[in-house]
Structures are given as C-alpha cells and as structure tokens.
C-alpha cells in the first residue's frame, strides 16, 4: 500500500462511448503524489490530461465513465466511496481550479458568496446555521474567512469586491477568485487545470507565483495540467508527459528537460521557442494527434516518430522503468527482443 503517498492512481482508465466507438480518454494511467509535491501533467489538447483530474474527483460527465483502476487518496479508493463521502472530499480535501475563469464563475451570484459556498457546504465554521436569524454569527465568521482568503490571493480591497459579480472582475482577478474558492477549505491537493491558459503572460506569472506561495506556505500538493512544458518545467518538481490517453514519460523536471527518454517529450522540447538560439527555427512535431476512437495496436506516437521501428506499431509498449522514479513508454533506449515468456502488461525493468 501507499506509505507516504497522498494520492496514488493505479491503472486509471476512463472511457467515453461515442458513435464511432469507445474513446479511451485515459488509458491505464499511474500517478503518485506526495504531500506538498508539485506534479506537472503535460500534453497536447485532447490527450486526456483534464479527464485525469475530473476522474480523480469523479466528475466525469455522462456518458463517460471510469471503467478500471484505483484512485487511492490517503489509502482510500475514491472509486469505492459513496456519493456523500465523495462530496465531502470534493472542495475540502481535493479542490480544483478550472481553465476558463469567466465561464467557470457563476454569472448570477456575487463572487464573495461563491467563495463562501464551499465553507458552508463543508460546515467549516462551527455554530448554529439554522434557523435564519441565529446563523448570523456563523455567516459573519465565514465572511471574515472569505475576506481573508481574498486578500491572501491578492484581490485588492476585498470588502468592496465581495459583493461584486464575476463580470465586474478582470480575467486575472477572476482566476484569483477561483483560486480563493479552491483554497478556502484548506485542501491537501489542488488540481489545477490549465490555470493560466486564458490569461495574458504577465498575469500568468503572477498566478503561478501565487500557486507556488500556496504550495510553500500551506504544503498543498498541486497537480498542474498544462500543454506548456516550459511552464511545467519551471513550476513543478515532477513531470508526467501524456499522449493519447497514456503517460509516455515520467520523471523529475531535470531528467525530463535535460535527458528526455521518449521521442514525444523530445519533440515537445524541440518545439519550444528559445531566445538564445536565434538561428534555429521552432521544430514542430510532424503529423497530428491520433484519433482516440481508432488507436493503433502499438505505440500511438509511432506514426509521428522519427525513431519508429517496425516493432513499434505492432506491439503494445509497456512502461519501462529507466531508473528510480523514471519511466518511459518507448523501445528506443532498449535493445528489445520479443520474449514470449515476458508478459507485455508488466513493467519490465532493465
């Protein structure tokens, strides 16, 4: 079992039935998250990163569903929790920050009340909350906490902003409000789904600073989902690269950036624009993201891979443990022969 693990995901598989067949948006994903760890989940849009986060909270939209795997939070499998137990975890132990702040904030409620909502749902402030006039003390204490957290996340003059509606906030302030909402109950895990994609670059830096502060002061573990490997490299200590619903490479930031094992990671690194190298042009990865409803038998990246061998397209590639805590789903660095007695599903140590 998980010793120091806060969250351990094993063989998570989430599928969406479509007219053209079953789409495995997340296919056998394994992840581990320690308290206070900063994990980056990187990949192109549509590779299943966000679905991993929503699967953790069990908020996959119907008719999608988790068909396999375990999601162990403090040793408890979230897939086996009742609806009520799950609701008690959402927002309190595991909170999520969404991608587009404007559409994520409810336009008809004032921001302060939306931040207060999680406090109220989880009964964080004790005291009588019913009937109406007697709950005033609770409501005032809750409001105080909301104002405090609004200040913490850098919303200026929270007293005035409490009763403002989302459309009266700027994009950066909206995202700060969403972060305040996620933090208000002091969660141990923060799931951040592209938190800065909708923002411009200076605001992006501020928001990432804020998230780092939260991580350092509260010890909140963060899973950062992003398509920007550079951002993940700057912010995280561990990175998992996803492609077509699977994790293709996993390791520490240093390992991933300096010595990518998987050709896809290599491609992602090569297509980052760099200021130092003037002459060199950005090298895009050729080809397109594969159709998740019609994945090949072998490596999903093989059609776009310059190292692809005949074998790559023919067999399902397992996760290889390259060194401790470092995995790659590629045959390139291995002198590999088919050994019938070796189960393909197992992780093969070299």
């Amino acid at each position: 079992m998980s010793g120091t693990e806060l969250l351990e995901i094993r063989q998570l598989t989430t599928v969406f039935p479509t007219r053209r067949g079953e789409v495995r948006a997340v296919d056998g994903v394994n992840l581990r998250l320690k308290p206070g760890q900063l994990l980056g989940l990187v990949g192109e849009s549509g590779c299943g990163k966000s679905t991993v986060l929503l699967s953790i909270l069990r908020l996959i939209r119907q008719p999608g569903q988790i068909v396999q795997g375990e999601i162990l939070f403090r040793g408890r499998d979230l897939r086996k929790q009742s609806g009520k137990a799950m609701r008690a975890i959402r927002g309190k132990d595991i909170a999520m920050i969404f991608q587009d702040p404007l559409s994520t904030l409810n336009p008809v409620f004032v921001v302060g009340e939306q931040i207060r909502e999680a406090l109220r749902i989880h009964h964080i402030v004790s005291g009588p909350r019913w009937p109406w006039p007697l709950d005033i003390a609770v409501r005032q204490n809750e409001k105080k906490r909301v104002l405090k957290i609004m200040e913490d996340v850098g919303i200026p003059s929270p007293m005035d902003r409490y009763a403002a509606y989302p459309h009266q906030f700027s994009g950066g302030m909206q995202q700060r409000a969403l972060i305040a909402m996620a933090l208000i109950c002091g969660p141990s895990i923060l799931l951040a789904d592209e938190p800065t994609t909708a923002l411009d670059v200076t605001i992006q830096a501020q928001i990432m600073d804020l998230m780092r502060q939260i991580n350092q002061s509260h010890g909140t573990a963060i899973i950062l989902v992003t398509h920007d490997l550079g951002l993940a490299a700057e912010f995280c200590d561990t990175i998992a690269v996803m492609y077509a619903g699977r994790i293709v490479e996993q390791g520490s930031v240093d390992q991933i950036v300096t010595d990518p094992q998987h050709p896809y990671t290599e491609g992602l690194l090569a297509c980052r624009p760099r200021i130092q190298q003037r002459e060199q042009r950005v090298q895009p990865i050729p080809g397109n993201v594969p159709d998740l409803a019609a994945l090949p038998v072998g490596c999903a990246f093989a059609p776009r891979c310059k190292y692809a061998r005949e074998l790559c397209a023919q067999v399902s590639i397992p996760m290889f443990s390259v060194e401790d805590g470092r995995f790659s789903r590629c045959l390139r660095h291995t002198d590999f022969r088919i050994e019938p007695h070796l189960g393909w599903d197992e992780i093969v140590r070299l």
Binding site: R90, G91, A95, D100, S103, N106, I121, H122
Partner: peptide
C-alpha cells in the same frame, strides 16, 4: 453542461443544490 455547474460540483455541493441553485437561477 456549463463550467460553473462543474465548479459547484467540485466544491462538493449536493446535486440538488447544483440543479436548483446554480443551474436553475441561470
């Protein structure tokens, strides 16, 4: 289907609260 309904769910709100407050008001 909106994002704010997903947000309300992610806060741990009960489904009826989500439906009758967040979705219905809009």
């Amino acid at each position: 289907r909106s994002d704010y309904v997903m947000l309300a769910r992610s806060k741990g709100a009960h489904e009826w609260n989500v439906v009758l407050k967040h979705a219905l008001r809009n």
